[in-house]
Amino acid sequence: MLTFDEIREIIKMIDQSSIQHFELNQDGTQIVVGKYAVSSQKNTPLDSEGVKETVSQRSTAAIQQESAKIMEEIEGSHLHKILSTTVGTFYSAPEPGADPFVKMGQQVGPSTVVCVLEAMKLFNEVEAGISGEVVEILFKDGEFVEYGAPLFLVKPE
């Protein structure tokens, strides 16, 4: 049987390659590694007999379900929501009187800082996580934000 480290090594190699699907049979152990788009609903190659260790990057049923739900939520507007990463107070600028991190209509990239959330005198930067255009800012300076609350709506590129 393969060790955990060996399996991890295999996944890493496949991840860095252009291989989409990989199967290995060794001493009665079968490993199937596949790269699947989030949207792919079918294509679950689990039909072999015997012992199976299935490892896949992003296609566990749970993630698929969750992404489907998020997809569904934003489907109507085609907008991406930037979600709060912590509980804290919303600030649109690095300090009072300074220019805001982003303005309405501004293009952002995945690593663009869009706001800070202050919790216990510590300011946590929130990144856009996506490329697109800011179409709505859902909070005002000083407002309290819950974990996971949508902060901005972004029209993806």
Binding site: P96, K121, F123, N124, E125, E127
Partner: peptide, 9 residues
């Protein structure tokens, strides 16, 4: 870090 300490103006 992606966070920073608050400071006086």
């Amino acid at each position: 870090s992606s966070w920073y300490a608050g400071r006086p103006p």
